[in-house]
């Protein structure tokens, strides 16, 4: 059959409003802190579009949102969440609590159930009771609170590593000992860095740069953060929860 003759088998050509922009995000909750991280590469297919496009955003002094998937949807979604949080601040003269932000994100995602924001969200921060928390979402708003979660292109590489190192899956504690329920901040940071260097090695869509946001509960000491390379404080006040970013290079190949 003549391949140019389409009359015999009509075809529907349709505009596809989505694409995938690669990258990976990850968050881990500690007892009284949380770490939310993402690489900074943005890609489409085999093209690296840019080596620096942030995927992790400070929402309030105790909430950080990581967004992964279709970058245009992600940026628009973050913009709208930030706008809702600003309205909340104007109405109530305080920042929205973390669990409320989590529910807000569910509602906003589900509102687009039949034309979804093609993004995986991970929300990390500090709850009202001072505990570190991580919430993870699917694109249409299903969510749960967890201790750790990886999402994005290298989810299948990073999540099993986290399951093993944080939930101690497939590990036997030494006789007479038990696995710790929460890890200290320096060890969590080491795990995050290892996760991303590992994902960078094995996944072509991960690399270029790493941004790790650390949220510390009120009154928490710096817990080993002092003097760490590439540290920058993002909090607006020093007597509440505090937010820091740590920026690291990842391989660019």
């Amino acid at each position: 059959m003549n391949p140019m003759n389409t009359a015999s088998h009509p075809q529907q050509r349709q505009f596809n409003p989505y694409t995938e922009n690669g990258g990976t995000i990850l968050a881990i909750a500690g007892l009284d802190f949380s770490v939310i991280a993402g690489d900074t590469r943005q890609s489409e297919g085999y093209n690296i579009q840019t080596r620096y496009a942030p995927k992790v955003f400070r929402l309030t002094d105790r909430a950080v949102l990581a967004v992964n998937g279709f970058a245009a949807d992600g940026n628009m979604f973050v913009k709208k969440v930030k706008q809702r949080l600003e309205w909340y601040r104007h109405a109530h003269a305080k920042d929205m609590p973390l669990h409320a932000i989590a529910r807000l994100i569910q509602t906003m995602l589900y509102a687009r159930r039949f034309f979804p924001y093609y993004v995986y969200n991970i929300l990390g921060g500090i709850e009202d009771d001072g505990s570190g928390a991580v919430y993870s979402f699917d694109p249409v708003g299903s969510y749960e609170r967890e201790t750790c979660r990886a999402a994005g292109a290298a989810q299948s590489l990073v999540q099993p590593f986290l399951d093993n190192q944080i939930y101690f899956k497939n590990q036997q504690p030494a006789l007479g000992t038990s696995h710790p329920a929460h890890l200290p901040l320096p060890q969590v940071l080491r795990l995050v860095i290892d996760s991303f260097t590992g994902a960078t090695e094995r996944h072509i869509e991960v690399g270029d740069g790493l941004e790790m946001f650390v949220v510390l509960a009120k009154g928490h000491d710096l817990a080993g953060l002092e003097g760490i390379a590439g540290l920058q404080e993002m909090s607006t006040k020093s007597d509440g929860e505090r937010i820091f970013v740590i920026r690291r290079e990842l391989k660019k190949d």
Partner: peptide, 25 residues
């Protein structure tokens, strides 16, 4: 910075659209 029909945006020191993204970038 760049923007396209999907609303995808990004910014970098060097940018190229179309075939240039493969050959010139």
């Amino acid at each position: 910075a760049y923007v396209d029909l999907l609303g995808t945006t990004y910014s970098a020191d060097t940018l190229a659209t179309g075939y240039g993204a493969y050959i010139a970038q």
